[in-house]
Amino acid sequence: MRTEELITQLSRGLKPVHRLPSPLAMLGLWCLFCAGVIGAALLVSGLRADFAAWLMDGFDLYHLMSAALVALTAGYAAFQLALPDRDQRWALLPVPAVVGWLVTMGWGCLEDLARLGPEALQLGISLPCLGFIIGLGVPMTVAIVFLTRHAALLRPVPVAALGGLSAAAFASLGLTLVHELNAAVMVLVWHGIAVLVVTALGALAGPLLMQRAAV
């Protein structure tokens, strides 16, 4: 087929399209959705028992804020990268927030170590914790993959991975409100593993889902 004929065919029967909202507007939509999901999780599980005391604790507040920052920057980067003409360097946007997140968790570990001694390093297995982030993060990843489905033919993998990271960070945020963990090491390890799993799932399965959603 000649290219000129293809153009004729493409323009014949052209349908109007709704222009995509800006990345910022998409981020707003995404945040609203996540807030809804976390709200629903709170309704089901209830706030953590030590919520008031926990609010006073500076470390957890930083931890919370850095997780929120990861969620927002990764989400925004995903919406930017989903558009054809945006710079690839958007992918680096969440890096400082991720580093900050790790630092707050690492700092928490050191504090625990100073307070409790070697006992703090004892690693319990917190499957509910892992399950919560993955259980919440995966459906949320599906949602952001749907929101960025137009990236299917452009750069699906980084977009889906960033979407997964944003979803996992939101899920981890939700978990912090629901579940109390007594040692920062546990937070670091279990949140870290869960976030990695969700991000990797996003990167692996996201592009396929995008193709499906876009068709």
């Binding site: 222009r19 054809p84 003409d85 137009h150």
Partner: peptide
């Protein structure tokens, strides 16, 4: 031709406030 088919599918992603050339070139 691949480019034309792709741009046809993602034509909703173009923002007229931005230049068109980088979009199609990408």
């Amino acid at each position: 031709q691949d480019t034309l088919l792709t741009l046809h599918r993602v034509r909703a992603t173009y923002d007229p406030a931005r230049p068109f050339r980088p979009w199609i070139a990408a």
